[in-house]
Structures are given as C-alpha cells and as structure tokens.
Simulated assay, not measured.
Amino acid sequence: MRHVLDSFAGFDNFLVYLAVSLVLLRAFVAIYIRVTPHPEFTLIREGNIAAAFSLSGAILGFVIPLGAAVRYSVNLVDMAIWGVIALVVQIAAFMVIRLLVPTVCDDITKGNSAQGFFLGSTALGVGILNASCMSF
C-alpha cells in the first residue's frame, strides 16, 4: 500500500504544471488565431482541411517545445518563461512563412490543402527544432 501512496507524491506538482501548460496553450491559440488573417475555427467547422492542417501543425509546433520546457525547466517560473519563448518562436515562424509565401493565408481560406499542410508542417518542424534547442 505504501508504494501506491508514494506514486502520488508528485501529483500536486503535476496538476500545477498541467494547469500552467494549459493556460499557455490557450494563450497561444488565442494569439495565433488573432495574428492569422483567416478565421481558422470557422473554416475548420466548414470542413476546410487546409485550415485544419495549418492550425493543428501550429498547435503541435507549440506543444512539443512546451513539453520540453516542462521536462527541462528547473522550476515553474522557468517553465513558464520557456513556454512564452516557444509561443513567440511559433508566432515568428508564421510571420516568416507569410513573408516568404504571401498568398498562404488566402490559399488556406480557399481550401488549398497543400498550403495548409506546408504551413502546418513548417510550424511542426520549427517546434521540434525549438524543443531540441531547449535541451541544453
């Protein structure tokens, strides 16, 4: 029975880190959908696969480095700081892609799945690279 109770020793820390992570995720999504000129959730509700690819890639591209921040941080404040850095990097990645491919947002609105997949994959790739850089 002692082993079972010992398993819950860090449960309070788990809940705190999870709560802060979810707040950061919500903040990321809120900021991302305001930065992009196309209405992701409306487009997704209408069945626009390009918008789903794009937003899903951005979310995964944020969550992966956020997970690295949880794993490698020394405390909750450190994790939150690196989470905000992950957020900024992901928003910057979108802006760079938009500069390189000026039609990407219009193409996603039109349902161009290739453009949505490209944007989502780029966000995911940037997120993986970002997470790897946090493992210093």
Rank of each mutant, 00 (worst) to 15 (best):
L124M: 07
P37K: 14
V23R: 04
I49L: 06
V104S: 09
A92S: 11
M134E: 05
M1A: 09
A92G: 12
V35C: 11
H3K: 15
F136N: 07
S54E: 09
G10S: 14
I97Y: 08
L129R: 08
L87P: 01
L60Q: 00
V23M: 11
H38R: 07
R71D: 14
I64M: 01
I31M: 13
F8S: 12
S7I: 12
R71Q: 13
G125I: 04
S132I: 15
D107S: 12
T36H: 11
K110R: 12
V35G: 12
L5T: 15
A69Q: 01
F8L: 15
V74S: 08
A92T: 13
A30D: 11
A58G: 07
V126P: 01
R71H: 13
A9Y: 06
I33C: 04
G125C: 03
I49Y: 02
V88P: 15
A86S: 14
D107A: 14
R98G: 12
V29K: 03
I49G: 00
I64H: 01
V20D: 04
L43H: 00
G83P: 01
G10I: 05
E46L: 06
D6S: 12
S73N: 01
N75H: 02
L15Y: 06
V16I: 12
V4C: 07
L15E: 03
V101N: 06
F94R: 11
N130R: 08
I31Q: 13
S54N: 10
N130Y: 10
R98E: 11
N112K: 14
L87V: 04
V16K: 10
A69K: 00
A92W: 14
T42E: 11
H38Q: 11
L124E: 01
G83A: 03
A19N: 05
L24G: 05
Y32C: 02
V35H: 09
F41G: 04
L100R: 11
A30L: 13
E40F: 03
G125P: 00
A93S: 15
N48A: 00
S73E: 02
S113Y: 10
T42C: 02
N48D: 00
F136Q: 07
L76Y: 08
L55D: 04
A123H: 09
V77G: 05
S73Q: 02
R45D: 01
K110M: 07
V63E: 05
Q90W: 02
M1R: 04
E40Y: 04
F8A: 15
I49H: 03
A19T: 09
A30G: 09
W82D: 11
S73I: 05
F136R: 07
V4K: 11
V84R: 03
R45C: 07
G57S: 03
L5K: 15
V126M: 10
D106V: 10
F41D: 09
F118I: 09
I44D: 06
T36M: 10
S113W: 08
I97F: 10
R2Q: 15
V4G: 08
P37Q: 12
S56V: 11
G83V: 02
A9P: 01
P37A: 12
P65T: 03
V23Q: 03
S113C: 10
S113N: 14
Q115K: 14
A69C: 02
Q115D: 13
F62D: 01
N130L: 11
L119D: 08
A19D: 04
I59G: 09
Y32D: 13
L60N: 00
T109M: 08
A68N: 04
S73V: 04
V88L: 15
R71L: 12
A51N: 03
L129Y: 06
V89D: 06
L24V: 06
F118P: 07
